[in-house]
Computed example of a mutant assay.
Amino acid sequence: MEFDVCPLTAPRLARGWRPGGMQLGYLIENRIDEVYVLSAPGPLETYVPVHDTGGFDRARTPFGAYDHKLDQVKGTTGPFSSHPDELRINFNALAHPNPDLAVVFAGFDLAASRLREPLFVVPSEDVPDVCTRHRCATCGRTHWQFVANMSGHSRDRASRYQVGLAELAPSRWPSWKPRLGLLGLSTVLTEVGTFFERQFDADFLAASTGDEVLMAPAPDLFGRDRLVLSKTTRAWVSLAIKGSTATSKQVIEANVPRRTFLAHPRHYLLIQHYERDRSAFHPWTWLMSSGDFQSLATGRAQYLHFATSLNATDNRWAPFRIPTASVGAAVRDLMRTRAARRAA
């Protein structure tokens, strides 16, 4: 998120403490997360950046829809102008145009600890038409400036982008029809799962070109562990990351809950094994599309089951083996393949 770059000082709180822009930005982002969840007609998947360098502050989709909408947040706590209904935000970074990306301009009332209403949700392609270049009297630098009237009666150029807090999620997905409820889903995070996810993060970031944005779910409830997006194209892939540290007769196993599993051409499963006795990952990893997994996995009550010998070369899972050392590059190349197909 980009917090208002001017004025250069934030309002004081009790006892004279002055929160910084990063702290206030984090606060505003989390308040917007709350508004999305409370205004959504069904379960909402939310992803946050693992490395905040791509201009995407959040990615969200209705559960199981794979219809990702991206947010870049610009916020301010004031001080506001003499006009009580005016929202004025100065910022430096202009979003790369993307049909799935919106810039959310938000005012936050620090004294009341709440977002001001309405928000302004501007498609990234429209931002240059809504904002102006402005030389700041405070710091002497030139910024982009967003100015809007929040009264609801104005007909300025930002007025058509007003969105009430209760309408935020429906405004992004007007035809959203929930697929299922959340009853019975576990909210427990496991240390083992986090271990494999962080290992993937390191592998992927080492192989990335700078165009990719890696995001993680928050909270992690819906069975997708990582989302990778391109800054310059609309390409994306998502991953469910499964790991094993225990073997029985050199067999690796993984279970995927049926309730949160919905196959999609851009959703993949990554299955790895960590050998505790060697303190190292097994040299082979299994990477497959969710469609292939659905076709080949066996059923075990509430789960889809994966099982293979660690060194098998001739069973149904063998075509999906890749060297563990190439995991980051393999996922990066999936992004390129998707971008090439879109261009074609």
Results as ranks from 00 to 15, higher is better:
His51Gln: 10
Val121Leu: 14
Leu214His: 08
Ala95Met: 04
Ser39Gln: 09
Ile271Arg: 02
Gly21Glu: 11
Ala301Cys: 04
Arg133Met: 06
Ala297Met: 10
Thr61Met: 13
Phe204Trp: 13
Ala325Asn: 13
Asp201Asn: 10
Asn149Asp: 15
Thr247Lys: 12
Pro49Leu: 10
Leu115Ala: 03
Gly42Phe: 07
Pro99Trp: 00
Lys231Asn: 04
Leu262Trp: 05
Thr132Cys: 06
Thr233Gln: 03
Tyr36Phe: 15
Leu8Tyr: 04
Arg258Leu: 13
Val104Ser: 06
Gly328Thr: 10
Asp4Arg: 01
Gln302Lys: 09
Pro43Met: 11
Thr77Glu: 05
Thr77Ala: 13
Phe281His: 01
Thr285Asn: 03
Gly223Arg: 11
Thr132His: 08
Arg342Thr: 06
Glu191Val: 11
Leu262Thr: 12
Tyr161Pro: 04
Leu180Asn: 01
Pro265Val: 02
Gly16Asp: 09
Gln23Tyr: 02
His51Thr: 10
Asp277Tyr: 12
Gly328Val: 05
Ala59Phe: 07
Met150Phe: 08
Asp52Val: 05
Glu212Asp: 07
Leu269Gly: 00
Asn92His: 04
Ala235Pro: 04
Gly140Met: 08
Ser81Gln: 02
Gly107Cys: 06
Val127Cys: 07
Gln250Arg: 15
Pro97Met: 13
Ala246Cys: 06
Pro257Met: 00
Ser208Gly: 07
Arg133Ser: 00
Trp17Gln: 12
Glu191Gly: 12
Phe306His: 07
Asp333Cys: 08
Tyr47Ile: 09
Pro219Trp: 08
His267Asn: 06
Lys231His: 03
Glu45Met: 15
Phe56Gly: 00
Ser39Asp: 08
Phe80Arg: 15
Val48Ala: 10
Ile32Glu: 07
Trp144Ser: 05
Thr308Arg: 15
Asn90His: 15
Ser290Met: 05
Glu117Gly: 05
Leu310Glu: 06
Phe281Met: 11
Glu86Thr: 13
Glu2Arg: 02
Ala207Pro: 04
His264Lys: 01
Pro11Trp: 01
Ala339Ile: 13
Met335Thr: 05
Ala202Pro: 00
Ala340Trp: 03
Arg31Leu: 10
Ala10Pro: 05
Arg60Val: 13
Phe261Ile: 11
Ile252Leu: 07
Gln23Ala: 14
